[in-house]
Amino acid sequence: MFERIMVPVDLTHAERLEKALLCAADLAAHYGATVIYVGVTTEQPSAIAHTPKEYAEKLSAFAADQAALRGISTEAKAYASHDPSIDLDPTLLKAVGEVNADLVVMASHIPNIADHWWPANGGSIATEAKISVMLVR
């Protein structure tokens, strides 16, 4: 039913994404789908990486770890944004098209991340994306 499952991740708080990651991995195993981890970073240095390129490398490493851990096929796609506090929604929606996803699995209501997605980021992705969106709380 699904071939490409997109999972937005915030590497700064990766540990809090566990449920969504597990859920996406189970679905991927069930349908033989590929999971694409999408991260949005700042162009300025952040806690997780000094540069967008370093961020992309860390995201790729994260995807590789997940592949080994869960026994699924994974990809990574990083975006740099001028102003992620505001531009996160449009960037993720753009990513849905660019990675050719047919399902989005995303965590919601994580402290601080919920604020990035202000107001209710998962909700707005579900409203505007043309494909199925599964919110994991």
Binding site: Q44, S46, D83, I86
Partner: peptide
């Protein structure tokens, strides 16, 4: 502290 992606309500 140099974070450019702090929550919007702060701005």
């Amino acid at each position: 502290g140099g974070k450019v992606d702090a929550p919007v309500p702060q701005r």
